[in-house]
Simulated assay, not measured.
Amino acid sequence: MDGSRLRSWNDGEAKRSIVEFVTTAATEGASGFIPAADRVAVFDNDGTLWVERPAPVQSDFVLGKLAARLKADPSLARKQPYRAIASKDDSFLRALSTEDPDAVTSFVEAIGSAWEGTTFGEFETEAERHLASWRHERFGLPATGLVYQPMLELFDYLRAYGWRLFVCSGGGRDFMRVICEETWGLPRENVIGSAPEFAYRDGVLVRRAVLHGPVALGPGKPEYVLARTGRLPRFAAGNDDVDVEMLESAQFALLVVHDDDEREYAYTGGAERARATAERCGWTTVSVKNDWNAVLEERPIQEEPSASRQ
């Protein structure tokens, strides 16, 4: 088995490095052999698996909810992210798009409060309804159409060699789980992200405003991966500074570089440390412009929310 599965990848150093690592890891007796149980691959989501500009996909869903809360209670404008919503502060959205830890933390905390007391099913129904109608402002695609085709091929390639795949994102775990099975082919338990605590009340589980552990950024990423899998990743992929620690924890690190403003977006904000670390440590870097001959391929999304959950 060779790299022919990676059809959207141009022949070059990035593709060759991936193929060499993956095939060697599956070859018993090779110096780079990795036992099947240890073949854990972890991917960041925003900017690594799908388009994150002009803002992460989840942003519109959450901002709509928070705007409604602010309208009902203007006193919320004293703190972030409500202050940014009230003043139409675009700098806060830019901070979110680069996954600035302070902005993401305040955002995640606001999410916790906004959905406090709702059931698991109620949250998912809201998310499904939003995703069914939401379209990207530039591409006109639904969220599932924003997933990078080369990364879906990489998922299939790794699976063929016995790798277990996980997504670890600073974004909301429960939001990603709405589309993970149909979009990435990943079971829900393989999605790791920032999430609330749940409480069992009157026979159902409801969301609490308290975060379950730290936000899944920076050091939080390998911490969550270890807690979830009992192992650190052997293969990790990310695209910006909040992925550095996860990439450092892996045997093979893949850094996506956004440099194609025709087919996607070209930007460096929030990835300066990641790029410097990649150069220093010899990570494999992926140029969207030069290493991918295709970027997006639309995937269908479930149109109607499920009525089977609580």
Rank of each mutant, 00 (worst) to 15 (best):
D2V: 00
G3C: 03
E13T: 14
S17R: 15
I18E: 08
V40T: 14
L49H: 00
E52S: 13
A55G: 00
P56R: 11
V62A: 10
K79L: 02
P81N: 06
A84E: 08
S91Y: 02
L93S: 09
A103C: 07
A103T: 04
S106I: 00
E109Y: 04
G112E: 01
W115L: 11
F120I: 11
E124Y: 02
T125A: 14
R129M: 15
A132Y: 00
S133F: 09
H136F: 09
P142L: 04
E153C: 10
A160H: 10
G162L: 05
F175G: 04
V178N: 13
I179D: 00
S194A: 09
S194E: 05
P196R: 09
F198N: 00
A199Y: 05
V204S: 07
V206T: 14
V210N: 00
V210Q: 14
L217N: 10
L217F: 03
P222G: 03
L226T: 05
G230K: 06
V244M: 04
E248L: 14
L255K: 09
L255E: 13
Y265K: 06
A266R: 15
T268A: 15
E272K: 12
G282I: 11
V286G: 02
D291S: 12
W292Y: 10
A294Y: 01
L296I: 08
S306K: 07
S306R: 14
A307R: 14
